[in-house]
Computed example of a mutant assay.
Amino acid sequence: MNAPLSRRPTQSAPVSLFDHPDFDSHEQVMHGFDAATGLRTVIAIHDTRLGPALGGCRMWAYANDAEAETDALRLSRGMTYKNALAGLDLGGGKAVIIGDARTQKTPELLRAFGRHVDRLGGRYITAEDVGMTCADMDIIATQTAHVRGTSANGLGDPSPYTALGVFTGIKAALAHRFGSDDLTARTVCVQGLGHVGMMVARNLHEAGAKLLVADIHTPSVEKAVSEFSATAVAADRAHAAVADVFAPCALGAGLNDATIPELGAPIVAGAANNQLAEARHGTMLRERGVLYAPDYAINAGGAISIALARPGGDDSAARDKTLAIGTTLLDIFQRADALDLSTQEVADQIARERLDGR
């Protein structure tokens, strides 16, 4: 999973929810507070036409409440489109808890959060995300049945499934651009070496790719250099590294007016959420001749594993659907070429078609 996505300027004055730039006809946004534990949470339900809203809960030390609300709004919309495009009968939602998960997370706070989830009556189903673990989900499950990814009903850490989907998506992008998904002669720059990014790097290394790696956490870079014979590049210049694929696996909004003209790879395919700073940047990528794998299409493996987990640890259905991400992306790429649209526009179209029952 990835760190918070929103890096827009902090708003200087309160803005009505309905006037918020990231409000997109969200069905419900709940602000929750618990005086005894200090819990401050935002739960955003974007769309439930396909089913209850599934989306993880992340705990992060946001700079202010407005930043937390922005993240919840953007992430919940992304989950609607992610679940729709993955063929899941689930809507999209997201929860954020404001606080440092390393120092402020307590069992009491998690139980308070679980009670807030339960008050929504099943319209929102929570799960693991940044700053949260399977053990945390077990605690939350003592207060509500509307939780996935517990030790009783989950497949454990969803990161390997996210990484598998990203790896499969990178191969699909290579096949579309170059006519072959063989990685042995390809260079991939992986930006962000958290749980998902490190697994993506490992999968690529085992497939024979040459790796460039970047992260603000030096020990992670050193690990990748040692284990994968990777070459380190500066984290803030990774997008400009000369490679066949740029795989952003850290912060969102990294594809913007400043970075897109500097891209050193003809393919962008990575795990980060909300990679486009604005929707128009999808068109900007196409105009530059860069093939972009829409983030919510390529990184859906974790959501799939949570949604399709079965008691006993059988992950065959989750793996099959995660591997199908490659086929979904090829369909998006081909349709984008045929319609002369950006891949982001096409992915949105396909998701909306399913949401509208077409």
Rank of each mutant, 00 (worst) to 15 (best):
R148L: 15
A84T: 01
A3L: 15
D71I: 05
A230C: 12
R354E: 01
L193C: 10
A272E: 01
L329Q: 04
D257A: 15
E345M: 09
N83H: 09
A53N: 04
E287V: 11
A318H: 01
D337L: 09
L120P: 06
G326D: 00
S159A: 15
A185K: 14
V117N: 06
Y161K: 10
G32E: 10
G56V: 04
G270C: 05
R74M: 13
A152P: 00
R177E: 11
T162C: 02
T80I: 06
R288M: 11
M30L: 15
G179W: 02
Q143D: 12
A112M: 06
A230I: 11
D138I: 08
P311Q: 10
Y292M: 07
A238I: 00
L85F: 05
A272R: 06
A86M: 00
H239M: 06
A238D: 01
Y296M: 05
L174Q: 03
Q191T: 04
D24Q: 12
S16L: 14
H116E: 13
A13N: 13
N274H: 08
A214G: 02
G121V: 04
E278G: 13
I332P: 04
L17Q: 08
D129V: 07
L329S: 02
L255V: 11
T10G: 14
E67W: 11
V117W: 04
D71C: 01
A317G: 07
L291K: 07
N64W: 10
P52F: 11
G252C: 07
R102K: 15
Q275G: 09
A135H: 13
V213I: 14
N64F: 10
A112S: 15
A303Y: 08
F113Y: 15
D136R: 14
G99L: 03
T218N: 10
R186Q: 08
G99C: 05
P160V: 12
Q334V: 12
P14A: 01
I332Y: 00
N203W: 02
G192A: 03
R358H: 09
A303P: 08
A214M: 03
L251W: 10
A232H: 12
G357L: 02
T142W: 02
I45F: 09
L285Y: 06
T184G: 10
S159E: 01
A347Y: 03
L120K: 05
D19Q: 13
T259I: 08
L54K: 09
G114V: 10
G194E: 05
A185D: 15
R186Y: 04
R74S: 12
C249T: 00
L330N: 13
A53K: 03
G169R: 00
L54A: 10
E108N: 10
G165Y: 07
G55Q: 05
N153G: 03
V290Q: 04
L204E: 01
Q349M: 14
I97W: 08
R177F: 08
D315N: 13
G131Y: 08
V196D: 05
P266K: 06
G302K: 05
L291D: 01
G78N: 00
L330P: 10
D181C: 13
E278P: 10
R40H: 14
T48K: 09
I45C: 06
G301Y: 06
F333E: 00
W60V: 11
T184L: 07
E69P: 06
V190T: 04
D89L: 09
G270P: 02
R58E: 02
E67S: 14
L193R: 06
D315M: 06
Y296H: 13
I298E: 03
V188P: 02
H20Y: 04
R319T: 15
T144K: 08
G264P: 02
A61G: 13
N299V: 04
